[in-house]
């Protein structure tokens, strides 16, 4: 555990990284500013960063199944047999992927984040009530 003065130093250092990164392009000279293709690509960054933060949780169960199927396909010897059918059921029972998809679909359709969130939370809670004991 980092403690005492060292920890305070870490906190200040981390704070500096926040200021520098959030203001980065506002601090760079005019000739460094993005144009054309780079500017178009950068326009997608805030959205995709949020997607990247949420994706590992949303795709958790699906990822496990794909990994198991892949190992089966290329014939990797498993220490113990992987219950693929059981895993499929587990994915159906993980409410996170369906609720994330509902949030995205409703938000894109209605252009309204509040409606998207209400729909997503609704689906999430319903699925959890229908299948207690799993995520």
């Amino acid at each position: 555990m980092i403690e005492g003065p060292e920890l305070w130093l870490v906190i200040v250092g981390m704070g500096v990284t926040t200021i520098v990164t959030r203001s980065a392009f506002l601090l760079l000279p005019k000739s460094w500013q993005p144009r054309g293709r780079v500017a178009i690509a950068l326009g997608f960054v805030p959205m995709l960063a949020i997607v990247g933060i949420v994706a590992p949780a949303a795709l958790h169960a699906a990822g496990l199944l794909i990994a198991a199927l892949w190992n089966e396909l290329i014939g990797v010897q498993q220490a113990a047999p992987v219950p693929i059918l059981g895993m499929s059921l587990e994915i159906l029972a993980d409410a996170r992927l369906p609720s994330a998809l509902v949030v995205l679909a409703v938000g894109a359709w209605r252009r309204n984040p509040l409606q998207a969130l209400i729909a997503g939370v609704g689906v999430f809670l319903l699925l959890r009530m229908a299948m207690p004991g799993v995520f």
Binding site: V10, M14, V20, T21, R22, A24, F25
Partner: peptide, 21 residues
């Protein structure tokens, strides 16, 4: 290494800041 990790995780803000220019 702790501070570099914070910098790396925060790098996406640098990309996003270009939209403010």
């Amino acid at each position: 290494s702790v501070i570099l990790t914070a910098l790396l995780v925060n790098m996406r803000f640098a990309l996003a800041s270009a939209l403010l220019v």
